[in-house]
C-alpha cells in the first residue's frame, strides 16, 4: 500500500514480445489510416493531398515497463495548394476506452477518432466522437471525412 492507502501500481511481469507486437500493429494502423485518407482525397478532392508532419513520440507505460525504446507515431496533415485543411494528431495506443486514439483538428471541428477493435484484431473499428453529434460515436467513413473537408472549404 502507498499514497492514500491505494494499492501499489501493477508491476505484473510484462510480455516484451507481445508489447512490441502491439506497438508495431498500432503504427501499421496509423499508416493504414494515412493511406485511407490519401485514397479518399484522390477520389473526392483531387486538389488536396496528405503531407507528413514531424512524428509524435510514443513511449507509454507498458513500453517503458517492457524496456522498449520510444517509437514514432506517424502524423500527417491534409493540405491544399495554399491552405492547411486538417491535422491528424496521434495521441497514443494505450487509451482507456479504446485501442488507440487520434485527434483530428481543423479550423471548424476537433473530433476524436478512436479504434474500438480488440488489440491485434485483424480489422480496425475506427469510430468518431464529434461533439456536435452528441455523446455517441459514429463510424469513421468516407462520407464523414468528406463532410469535415467540405466544412473547411466552404
Amino acid at each position: 500500500m502507498s499514497l492514500f492507502g491505494l494499492p501499489d501500481l501493477d508491476e505484473e511481469p510484462i510480455d516484451v514480445a507481445h508489447t512490441e507486437r502491439l506497438v508495431d500493429d498500432w503504427i501499421a494502423r496509423l499508416q493504414g489510416l494515412r493511406s485511407q485518407v490519401a485514397g479518399w482525397l484522390a477520389a473526392d478532392f483531387p486538389s488536396l493531398s496528405v503531407v507528413d508532419r514531424a512524428p509524435v513520440p510514443l513511449h507509454q507505460g507498458p513500453m517503458r515497463r517492457a524496456g522498449l525504446p520510444p517509437r514514432d507515431m506517424p502524423a500527417f496533415e491534409v493540405v491544399g495548394a495554399d491552405a492547411r485543411i486538417m491535422r491528424f494528431v496521434p495521441k497514443g495506443l494505450w487509451v482507456i476506452g479504446a485501442n488507440g486514439r487520434v485527434d483530428i483538428i481543423s479550423r471548424r471541428a476537433a473530433p476524436e477518432l478512436i479504434d474500438r477493435s480488440e488489440p491485434l484484431a485483424p480489422e480496425t473499428n475506427w469510430q468518431i466522437y464529434d461533439s456536435r453529434l452528441g455523446i455517441r460515436s459514429v463510424p469513421w467513413t468516407m462520407g464523414y471525412f468528406g463532410g469535415l473537408v467540405r466544412e473547411v472549404l466552404a
Binding site: 507509454q60 507505460g61 497514443g92 487509451v95 482507456i96 476506452g97 474500438r116 460515436s137
Partner: peptide, 8 residues
C-alpha cells in the same frame, strides 16, 4: 500521460 476516451 494516461490517455482516456471519456465518452467511450
Amino acid at each position: 500521460d494516461e490517455q482516456f476516451s471519456v465518452r467511450a
